[in-house]
Design a protein around this nucleic acid. Structure first.
Ligand SMILES: [Mn+2]
Ligand SMILES: [Mn+2]
Ligand SMILES: [Mn+2]
Ligand SMILES: [Mn+2]
Lengths: 218, 218
DNA sequence: TTATATTTTTAGACTAATCTAAATTTTATT
DNA sequence: AATAAAATTTAGATTAGTCTAAAAATATAA
């Protein structure tokens, strides 16, 4: 089997591949995992030996089918556990990520499937991220963010691109949670600061914040 | 914090201490953890440095208050997760131990307490083992086993001393599960094989099996 | 109470994962 | 195309946990 560390590398490579990048760079992985490029090179070699990634020196790394399957399965676990923690144990959406980082590695088919069933086969996690189904199929978000809207447009909040505690906490204070409807009232031309309507309240939100909020136009 | 490995050592020492032994031996720990005595000596030294055990060369090891607290907390996690797996995810009692061995190390106060609450503050796990409360208080079984009974006595099954898959599976086939009433019909003098009544059915059970079944006389 | 057996510890080596510093390769810039 | 900058890899060291083989201490038995 794969160690927790190997699984975390696979997950990181998977996520970095989503931006259409062909050949994920050593530095990008090091950054994401808060480790050093030399450590990444070592691990990549090991993953390549195990046929989990394809790799040529200096050319970046790509997941094989096998590696991608492992990554998706870890992500499935992670998101199912986040749903469990929020729905069943009443955690808040800014509290569950770190716990899910640990729970995701208990990678037993039967446990995952039973958990999925217990939760009623949820399609999205508490941050709006799609949960891969048991065959690994995953619907990616269309990635329209609040910052893409123009004055007068309305949309529903469907996810976040940034998962830090401070961001999630901030959003909750503004009542900018999943499912809430927003309307763009005004945009400052200089720095794209937005004035929006949330639950009938006027809210001012920076571009830094609005470009991490995934929405669906209505 | 403590590594998974350290936690497993503490748990092993805790369990070996329950037999009233003063000074748990290196070999006993090695046996329980399926490792070598030399590895145990190394780890004991580390745990002693961390004030989790008290230890003098060649004299065996004892948990400190601090070490005992960690051990009890891991055991609490383990048993709560076993309840979760059986009650909520419909696992059978012979399937949950290995999963709980992994889940128990996600040792976060808040998670444990929320899980306890979600499960309705259970007092016993699926094998009849008592669950320590949040302050670490734990009621130990009185340890009367089926093999202690004499002809004609009746009792209720309240636990098992052996947790192997094969034993639990065997018991289930005989319908010897928690809460079931048994009556001793006959005992073979030679090897203490018992003939008992379970759910109105006659069952023959070896001493090997009967001495691992914890019961409460009625 | 010596000799023998058993238990425990030490010494030295190995693997996984990490790091720093130096060397190499690739990419960008003159 | 030559040079500078950035990215990547290699070399060598470190830490946690483990192991085997040998030495030392304790327990048992003649
Ligand atoms: Mn998460
Ligand atoms: Mn999430
Ligand atoms: Mn168990
Ligand atoms: Mn149990």
């Amino acid at each position: 089997m794969n160690s927790f560390t190997e699984e975390n590398y696979l997950k990181a490579i998977y996520k970095l591949s989503l931006n259409g990048v062909q050949g994920v760079s050593t530095n990008a992985i090091a950054d994401k995992l808060a480790t050093k490029p030399s450590s990444v090179t070592d691990m990549i070699k090991k993953l390549a030996d195990k046929k989990l990634v394809s790799y040529q020196k200096y050319q970046g790394v790509n997941l094989t089918k096998k590696g991608s399957d492992v990554a998706v399965s870890i992500i499935r676990n992670h998101r199912l556990w986040e749903v469990f923690l929020v729905e069943k144990l009443n955690f808040k959406w800014d509290e569950v990520h770190d716990l899910a980082e640990e729970l995701e590695h208990i990678n037993t088919h039967k446990l995952t499937e039973r958990l999925d069933e217990f939760l009623g086969f949820p399609k999205f996690d508490p941050h709006g991220d799609p949960i891969p189904d048991k065959d690994g199929n995953i619907i990616q978000h269309k990635d329209v963010t609040l910052s893409d809207l123009i004055r007068g447009e309305k949309a529903v909040v469907v996810g976040v691109k940034e998962h830090s505690k401070s961001y999630l906490n901030y959003l909750e204070q503004l009542q900018l949670v999943l499912g809430v409807e927003v309307e763009v009232k005004d945009i400052v031309e200089f720095d794209a600061t937005m004035q929006i309507l949330v639950n009938n309240k006027q809210v001012i939100i920076s571009n830094q914040a609005s470009k991490n909020l995934i929405v669906k136009k209505i």
